[in-house]
Design a protein around this nucleic acid. Structure first.
Lengths: 148, 148
DNA sequence: TTAAGTGCAAAATCTTTGCAAATGT
DNA sequence: ACATTTGCAAAGATTTTGCACTTAA
């Protein structure tokens, strides 16, 4: 195991413990998978990659526990399929800091979290009370651009 | 039938014909239902209201044909359930003008299309090509505000 | 008349639940 | 040791497909 990997899995151990979840190989595997790509990953995709190792039901339960604890947040792709991305550190159980722009590729359907893109101010009618904003940009991602 | 209703159904007849769809009582019923509320309606909601009159499979097919033809557009609510709203007139089959802010109520889960709210400009990294933007605001809608 | 739309039955997916066995702390 | 987590089987929910009957144009 490289230094980097050791570092990363130590972080994951801490992350799970901090959120009252036991450290299990399956949970580490899912966390690892979620950080591998720079895009959010859907349950079906996870099932394809790690479906042989982890039972489908367990995968559902792992993702759901992560979501409950605020370890991941859920973004829906263009087909309405849930995708999961690891929250950045300032997410709390009941206060997700997922106010960043998501980019969804219309070709490969990947969901990217664009943390660096500034989030706009939106003036809403006064009969609506705003709690959160989700901004999804749809288009061609870097990989699919090359192949056009 | 009131003048207003007559007017409305004439529009719907035209709308269906313009999009190469035959005018049937079921399709008119669905269109009527979609305009009744000022919020987007989900398939399950439609099924609750008109499920006795229309077979579930037919409802799926009607919504899917509407979507294909660009008569409605599809927005996903907080649970990832598809909701449908009638497109405004400048929608075309392959060019949806649904670049308006959607407001999703976290209590009643209603989806509103806020056509009047200005749409922001978002600067994206140059390795992403933008085709469309979807902006979903989540919070309390006018009805649920009253009941707090 | 005839192509499109509909209903019913059935299949295919997707997601959740219950419970006994295995595992982490 | 004990509460959690996991796998398997099964139930439930959602969506799609095939085919014969009906209807709009």
């Amino acid at each position: 195991m490289t230094e980097q990997k050791k570092e990363k899995s130590r972080d994951f151990n801490q992350l799970l413990r901090d959120n009252g979840l036991k450290v299990t190989p399956h949970r580490l595997r899912v966390l690892d998978e979620l950080t591998h790509k720079n895009a959010a990953v859907s349950q079906p995709d996870l099932e394809k990659t790690i479906g042989a190792e982890i039972d489908r039901v367990t995968l559902y339960r792992i993702l759901s526990s992560f979501e409950d604890q605020g370890i991941v947040h859920k973004i829906f792709d263009l087909q309405g399929t849930a995708t999961y991305a690891i929250c950045n550190s300032d997410c709390r159980k009941d206060h997700h800091q997922d106010q960043h722009v998501h980019f969804i590729c219309s070709v490969c359907n990947s969901v990217y979290c664009l943390d660096e893109v500034p989030f706009p101010y939106i003036p809403l009618p006064k009969n609506f009370t705003l709690h959160a904003l989700a901004l999804n940009a749809v288009g061609l991602c870097e990989n699919c651009q090359k192949e056009e």
